[in-house]
Amino acid sequence: MKLYYTLIIILTGLPLALQAQSPLEKSIKRGSDLYEDFCVSCHMSYGQGIPNVYPPLAKSDFLMQNRKASIKAIKYGQTGEIVVNNKPYIGYMAPPGLSDDEIADVMNYITNTWGNKNTKMITEEEVSLVEK
């Protein structure tokens, strides 16, 4: 009986363990560390931003519907007005100086956290093709 349960645990745990090793999961983990360093002081711990100053990333329509523009903003910085969840933000975000693979990791993290979901993984190559 004990053996039976052990087997069940191993068999159900195995795919989970393997899944945790997927490239997307690994990228999200790296992205989480980069987020804590480069993004958190403005966009905050739960991606909520600061009202009227820094736009939210959590459940952000801009982020989830404008994949290329979001990559571009991180790669080259963001100027001028953008509208996020029906609210305008007029600010300047300096390019944080991340490499293309790091931008992919951050994008995979922020598009898969705080209720956001994006199964189509962002790759270094995709970031490299985004032009100014």
């Binding site: 360093d37 480069f38 300096a94 390019p95 944080p96 100086g97």
Partner: peptide, 8 residues
Amino acid sequence: VYVRGQGG
């Protein structure tokens, strides 16, 4: 200059 995060 090394432009990275808050650095520049």
